[in-house]
Amino acid sequence: MSQGETARALIDLFSGYRVGEASATRIVSENAAVRQGLDSCARSLADAPPANLEIVFDRAAPK
């Protein structure tokens, strides 16, 4: 079974929705890209304190 077919089967199993074959192929490649990005963050963020976007925005706003 190809990765695309596996993704298709899992999505069908979990959501009851049958994605197209081309979509399944895209899902595999997009997930690979995201996983790579997350992996690169995880190394540097293991000790990062909790953050909130609104607080980040308010702190950085022009005073």
């Binding site: 959501s15 929705y17 994605v19 899902i27 595999v28 997009e30 997350l38």
Partner: peptide
Amino acid sequence: GLARLELGLGYPATA
């Protein structure tokens, strides 16, 4: 439109 929406069904919740 449908092809792009279908992408959203394929990411793990953890990611």
